[in-house]
Nucleic acid binder design. Structure first.
Length: 597
DNA sequence: GATTTCACGTA
DNA sequence: CGTACGTGAAATCC
């Protein structure tokens, strides 16, 4: 608890220069990596706090961005912030800090799930029940603030944050900013204690740091965007759906033209809207093809059975481009500066992968030729090879599988050890990680169990816990929450099916989640080391990095990305028994396979 | 008008 | 009855 904090807050407000602030921080013993609470409100100022009860400076008339930037360069502290909103405010001021402790991000790591507003973060850090968090009540004539106690204290008598503060009151004055920073600093200590107490997750604190840095990276990714050549993009789209329509009538005519290519294989006069799956199903029945659904992979298996299938698939593909990645997408998400921008999140609420909007994570490969480096620049494209089985070998501590991971292609030695061909070995390993129970992968399962008992035991234990509805924790310490396991009103079949689904989910989450943690360590290492070469990450795609760099630094950046993987793996991994590799190339456009320069 | 279903793009 | 995500249109539910 932080009782007795407020009385010692009095009289600390000063307007300072950067050198004054640095001097104060140095006197307080702040060095590289030490926690400093930070609260920023453009137009109001900023609050800094070295300890939970002695916020030492507040810049009411100072330029907050310049102050933070100078301190970051001179002292290199780890900035404690309530969420990436602070980083957004800083980036808007042109400031990119080196290190952070993002309370919302660390909260998601410790508690799982996605909700991480300050009231929830504070309550969890204090060990207070989250279902008793007060919500902001509408003001009435008789009370200015709904909650009792001193309204200038961020914490109410119950120990919860005041709703009015959380709702924006924290930025109402410089004094409040200072207190908000001090409170953040206090919360970071509490979170640190929780992570330190996870004796079975020795890298949890390191994960908190790398996930916090990844939060900074996400803010920068959203601000910078991905270089896209609009003209190239429009050309690719035209190849699929025809020229850009100038009005609704032209768009409708184009649609009719594309539909007609399909309908000419149907009885004359047929009128189906091919955008409707139900009508496609009717159409297929009309021509004598009976299907339970009309998904692409099902239609693909029917290729050759009827001449309508092929043009129908072509229509579907064009329709996907047209509706999701067409001219409207280009107009909406690619700025005048040729940058495709979306929002980024560090973790997806489940296993902890990064997510991105605006199609950044599901851009069709056919359109990737439009992702072109700016003049005088190149991309370094690097993707991790066979990351999930390598991560499994590492986190489970399976020495036999780890030995196979010494090979560039781990499926070759695995196939040899299992006594099967490479393709079978691959589907077996992937199937084990995904919880597959049927098909070719399942047939090799028993051999997998006997050859890699440690790795398979790790997966089976996770699946077993998940099936029972118990939460899991990844190697790096992220809590993976299992949904409620309600049984009332469900048949035994449904209950069993839901349990099995949780098992697959949990089994996969342990691997996918750990892989995501390693990936983020790699990414933030590249972020940190890359600035010396003016190299900026412009895309993260689960196991792939795209780095934009001046062309004269391309080769050096490629080496740096590889070096960063070695560094990241050593920082992340329990030991060095598993080899991690990246396929790294210097290219002008994302779609280029190898170095054209 | 809001929510669910179907479909499909990526890893 | 192999995992995760984001997106869009149609279908469905108020």
């Amino acid at each position: 608890m932080v009782g007795g904090v407020t009385e010692r807050w009095q009289g600390c407000g000063v307007d300072v220069t950067a050198s004054d602030a640095i001097e104060s921080l140095r006197r307080a013993g702040v060095g590289r990596g030490d926690l400093v609470g930070l609260a920023v409100a453009p137009g109001v100022g900023l609050g800094l706090a070295v300890t939970s009860n002695e916020p030492i400076v507040v810049g009411e008339r100072t330029d907050p961005g310049q102050l933070v930037s100078t301190i970051d360069a001179e002292l290199g502290p780890r900035w404690v912030m309530w969420s990436s909103d602070t980083a957004v405010a800083l980036v808007d001021m042109g400031v990119r800090v080196t290190r952070s402790w993002d309370l919302a991000t660390v909260h998601r790591l410790i508690e799982g799930g996605w909700r991480a507003d300050p009231a929830r973060v504070w309550a969890a850090a204090q060990g207070l029940p989250t279902d008793e968090i007060p919500s902001e009540r509408p003001h009435d004539l008789f009370s200015q603030d709904g909650s009792p106690g001193d309204p200038d204290d961020p914490v109410d008598p119950d120990g919860h944050l005041r709703p009015e503060w959380v709702g924006g009151g924290w930025a109402a004055s410089a004094t409040r900013l200072r207190r908000w920073a001090a409170l953040a600093r206090a919360a970071a200590d509490l979170q640190r204690n929780v992570l330190d107490a996870m004796s079975d997750r020795p890298t949890a604190v390191a994960t908190a740091r790398s996930e916090s840095a990844a939060e900074l990276l996400c803010v920068e990714l959203a601000a910078d965007g991905l270089p896209v050549d609009r003209r190239v993009g429009a050309g690719l789209i035209e190849g699929f759906v025809g020229p850009r329509p100038e009005n609704d009538d032209q768009a409708a005519a184009e649609l009719r033209r594309r539909q007609a290519d399909v309908l000419r294989h149907a009885p004359p006069g047929s009128d189906f809207d091919l955008r409707s799956p139900a009508q496609v199903k009717s159409l297929l029945r009309r021509v004598g093809v009976e299907v339970p659904d009309t998904r692409a992979h099902r239609l693909e298996s029917l290729r050759g059975t009827h001449p309508i299938i092929e043009p129908l698939l072509a229509f579907r593909k064009a329709e996907r481009i047209n509706t999701t990645y067409g001219y409207a997408w280009l107009d909406e998400h690619v700025g005048d500066d040729g940058r495709l921008r979306g929002s980024w999140t560090v973790c997806d609420g489940a296993a902890g992968r990064m997510t991105a909007s605006s199609g950044l994570h599901n851009l069709p490969t056919d359109l990737r030729a439009a992702v072109v480096a700016e003049p005088g620049h190149v991309f370094v494209r690097a993707d991790l090879g066979q990351i999930e089985p390598r991560v499994l070998a590492s986190v489970s501590g399976d020495r036999v599988l780890a030995r196979a991971c010494q090979a560039d292609d781990l499926y070759a030695p695995v196939a040899q050890q299992l006594g099967v061909d490479r393709a079978t070995a691959k589907v077996a390993v992937l199937g084990a990680m995904y919880g597959q129970t049927t098909g070719r992968g399942a047939e090799a399962l028993s051999r997998l169990e006997s050859t890699y008992p440690v790795a398979m035991g790790y997966l089976n234990a996770a699946a077993h816990e998940a099936e029972a509805g118990r939460d899991l924790r990844t190697y790096g310490g992220r809590l993976v929450r299992m949904g409620p396991t309600a049984v009332d009103g469900r048949s035994e079949r449904e209950v069993r099916s839901a349990s099995a689904a949780r098992g697959r989910y949990g089994r996969n989450a342990m691997v996918q989640g750990a892989a995501a943690e390693l990936f983020k360590v790699w990414a933030v290492t590249v972020r940190a080391r890359g600035s010396a070469l003016d190299a900026r990450i412009v895309l993260c795609l689960h196991d792939e990095l795209l780095v934009h760099v001046p062309e004269e630094n391309g080769e050096a950046a490629a080496r740096l990305v590889d070096d960063c993987l070695v560094e990241a793996a050593h920082r992340w991994a329990p030991d060095r028994s598993v080899r991690f590799l990246a396929d790294t190339v210097v290219v002008r456009r994302w779609s280029d396979a190898k170095d054209p320069a």
